[in-house]
Write a protein that binds this DNA or RNA. Structure first.
Lengths: 206, 206
DNA sequence: TCAATATGTGAGTGATTACTCATATTTTGG
DNA sequence: CCAAAATATGAGTAATCACTCACATATTGA
């Protein structure tokens, strides 16, 4: 009857997967976590069921994630990284373009990013507010904002800090809402978002 | 985390407060619930602590709310009702106005509504996604959308269903974001939202 | 071949918490 | 003044769940 200490959320640094087998386990856990989050919501998201769905044991899960929140945190981090990637590609492709074209490319990248699995996108956005984000996750968010500010500044937009935040909120709201209610015509969605964004910036729509 | 209990979360219809004393208890519970939700988030929101903060006992709480979710549900219902009220007043005051003026009034009403306690607004919006809303709450949401559609239709906007949803998403995103990061200049916020909304509708800003 | 290391296991532990119920107190109507 | 109705109480109950640990199995590298 080993009297053990109460289960405390240890901040222990966990192992990094070094063998392919371990990486597969981590991937399976993240996959399972995504399904649970979408299917049962944050409420039904618990480590036991995530491990079970992943075909692993809770013990394995805790080898790679120090606590429940870290799983969500990693999913958010990965998603932000993908978005930043898309936006960077759009930025690079429009170094010489005018603002409307550059903006259109950024909006298109954002729509494409959310389009794949909008329910997961939404669930992660919500969950991100409930768990402490990793420093890397926070840094990615900042990087996304900075990219936007950079593009706006290059085209002499005023108040770039506020404008970047507003445009991000505006796009996220519209895109999230539209994709969640099942819209599939992304071209039409893109056009509507561009009307709002262009109006905000006081430029003509292309 | 919250889960069901052995004794099934009875869907029993609970008592309505008939004496002033009872109404005061209910009010105190809702007040306390708001503070807890803002302070500890949905995670830390549990019936024991809500009752304690309200200066009542858990037993009393369960006299008036069939379960934990019902508390949130009622808060959401009340908030939606207040928003609808504000929008109806704006609509009534602009039966004869042109679209830009009517729209401005609706935006102003929305900003005023969120402005009082933006953290609570946000917390409730998030929480609304986690609990089953009452039929009345759902009906209020529908009524808000219908009001918007009615105004747009009166001014011959095309695709009113989509437009109403887009405008709501757009406004909510921008207003929520701005107020949460501490913006206090509501006139400036109003102007920015109007630029986006006007751009969306293809009308000139007033 | 064979240690050393990496990975996997899952029953068990303590903490939390939604909700009940037997009982006590207050208010009301006549 | 008094019963009936309304309201309040809070210890207790069973369920859930994050997390650990002692141990088993697989892989690696020399």
């Amino acid at each position: 009857m080993p009297v053990k200490t109460s289960a405390q959320p240890s901040a222990n640094p966990r192992k990094k997967p070094r063998q392919a087998r371990a990486q597969a386990t981590v991937d399976a856990i993240l996959q399972a976590a995504a399904h649970i989050l979408v299917g049962q919501g944050f409420e039904g998201f618990n480590t036991n069921v995530v491990a079970e769905r992943a075909g692993a044991s809770v013990g394995s899960l805790y080898q790679y994630f120090p606590n429940k929140e870290a799983i969500i945190s990693e999913m958010v981090r990965a998603k932000r990284a993908r978005l930043l990637n898309g936006l960077q590609a759009a930025e690079a492709a429009h170094q010489e373009s005018e603002l409307p074209e550059a903006l259109a490319a950024l909006v298109a990248a954002t729509i494409a990013h959310q389009k794949g699995w909008p329910q997961l996108s939404q669930a992660l956005d919500r969950a991100a507010a409930l768990v402490p984000l990793s420093v890397e996750g926070t840094a990615l968010t900042a990087a996304i904002l900075e990219l936007l500010q950079r593009v706006l500044r290059r085209h002499d937009v005023a108040d770039v800090e506020i404008a970047a935040l507003d445009l991000l909120s505006l796009c996220r709201g519209m895109i999230d809402g539209a994709l969640l209610r099942g819209e599939t015509d992304t071209a039409a969605l893109q056009a509507r978002v561009m009307r709002a964004a262009s109006g905000y910036l006081g430029i003509a729509v292309t």
